[in-house]
Structures are given as structure tokens and as C-alpha cells.
Design a protein around this nucleic acid. Structure first.
Lengths: 146, 146
DNA sequence: TTGGGTGCAAATTGTTTGCAATTGT
DNA sequence: ACAATTGCAAACAATTTGCACCCAA
């Protein structure tokens, strides 16, 4: 009997992009997939690892996240303020809304904006390769955000 | 007769926001206003100062740029990759398009996108405070960008 | 076995801050 | 005169890298 059945979806994800299935990579993938926050900084991930008793260095977290980004497994966002945040790239493309009061991040998608963006690029003789749109919002007074 | 006629538009801009009219501030304001690139990093500004023979420290450049941002004289952008870039906030609001091939930055404005953004925020119970939109583009093949 | 992967510490990069000296008003 | 401002160096924060050891294939 093998040491462990390594046939999980996650281990396949790693093999698929040519990365060895190591403990740190599995754990990080796991955390990104099941954490309360969809968007985490390298430190966030590191803290969860530590609390969980894993002996994984912060440097490794950064290295793994970079590899995941290159492999297209995660997307890296910059938002405002120093740290980068990473999120699993499972569901398709979407943009973000960050509440400046609570820090909450909400995802949204809008086909019309996407279309206009493409048109603008075209109009200048370019092709739209990618884009980054972040709305900084604040709860409407006398109204509960949903 | 005073050492120098301090009645320039720039010196007025500074007084207006309650900042003393100092040599470093004037020079930096000057550089931001007359540089080939509209968007400069603190280092960019610093280099120009050095080449020009000015004896102004990098720390001062950062401090002044921060003050200018607080005063609303410049806008700070994050784009991709570490450094922040600053630009004079003269013309009204606009978004940016960055050519991933040449690094060229093009500004544009689109009322429709702005409107939709506001609607999206509203729909979630928020008020749009600010936003950041950057299009990453590439020259259309067989077509000269203009 | 063996080349990629990892932990740790040291190195980088971008930016901020403490402090004594300097300068605008 | 006096508080604001600056230069310099040291301090910081986020991220990367060098290297000896380790482990998945």
C-alpha cells in the first residue's frame, strides 16, 4: 500500500504545470482554496501555516506563490498599499471592489465595461492584453451594504 | 530688491496649499511639469535633479512628493511592479493604458465606464469613493499605434 | 540517485524616519 | 527669531536570493 493516496485534484493541478507535489505546495494550495478570505497576502498564508503547526518558511511561501502565478494557478493583485494579495484563479475573470472602511473585498463582473475597454484600446491602435480595475468604495450612509 | 521675484504660478500653487516655497519643492514641481514623461518615480525625479546639479536628497524627493499628494498637487499610481509613479494633477480625472511592449503610458477618459462603475457600487450598497483602472495593451499587429 | 525544492539567514529594493543643521517668512 | 524644511544615515517593510541540506520521482 502506498504511503498515501496522491490522487487528489490538487496534486493533479501541480503535476499538470510541471511542479513537484511537495508538502509546502499542497498546503499552500489548500489554504488558498479553503480560507475565509479569498485574497491573501504572503504573510496571511504564512500565519495560517504557522498556526497549523507546519514548518514552512516565509521565503518558501513567496517562492511558491510566484511559481503558482507563473503557472496561472493564482492571480496576484496590487491594490493600494505595499503588499500584494494572491487569489486562486478558479472562476473566470472578474474585477474588485474594496471597501475603504472595512477592507472587505467584493468581486464583480461587467461585460459592458470589458467591451468598452477593448474598444478604447482598439481606438488607439492597441490590443487589450489585460487590465486591472479596482473600485474603492464606502458603505452608503443609512443603507446596509449587502 | 528681493533676491528673486517669487511671483510665479508655481510658487503660488505651493503657498495656496500652505507649503513654504523652498528650492527643492520648486524644482520638483518644475520637473514634474516639464519632463518628457508625465509619470515619474521618485528615483526618476531624483536622477533629473542630480543631472541638473541640484543638491537634493532622495528622502526629500519622497517627502515632497508625499506632501504634494496630500495637497492634491500630484496623484500617485501603483501600476504593476514595486515603484509608485507620480503625475501632476492638472487635467481632470483620467485612466491609463500602459503598453506592455514599450512601457508607454497613454491617458484616456470615458464617461460611460465611470457611470457604470458608480452603478455597480450603488447596486452593492456602496458609494464609489475612487477607482483605479489600468489597461495593459500591446500594439495591434500590422498597425501603427497612434 | 539526483535535480528540484526547502529553510534559514543575509541581501535587495523601495520608502520612511530621527536628528542636527539650514532656511523661508 | 522660530518653526518648517532638508540632507544624511539609519531604520523599515516587503520580497528575493545564496547555499547547504532534504526529499519526491
Amino acid at each position: 500500500m502506498p504511503h498515501r493516496a496522491e490522487r487528489t485534484a490538487e496534486s493533479q493541478d501541480l503535476r499538470k504545470v510541471g511542479l513537484k507535489v511537495t508538502h509546502p505546495r499542497m498546503r499552500i494550495l489548500d489554504i488558498l482554496g479553503s480560507a475565509p478570505k479569498k485574497h491573501m497576502t504572503a504573510e496571511d498564508v504564512y500565519k495560517v501555516l504557522i498556526e497549523h503547526g507546519d514548518d514552512i518558511g516565509l521565503a518558501t511561501v513567496y517562492r511558491v506563490l510566484n511559481q503558482f502565478e507563473t503557472a496561472g494557478i493564482v492571480v496576484r493583485h496590487h491594490f493600494e498599499g505595499g503588499q500584494s494579495v494572491y487569489e486562486l484563479d478558479e472562476d473566470g475573470h472578474h474585477d474588485h471592489m474594496v471597501c475603504v472602511a472595512t477592507g472587505k473585498v467584493i468581486e464583480f463582473q461587467n461585460a459592458e465595461i470589458e467591451r468598452i475597454q477593448r474598444e478604447i484600446a482598439e481606438a488607439h491602435g492597441y490590443e487589450l492584453e489585460d487590465h486591472s480595475l479596482v473600485l474603492y468604495v464606502r458603505p452608503k450612509k443609512a443603507d446596509k451594504p449587502r
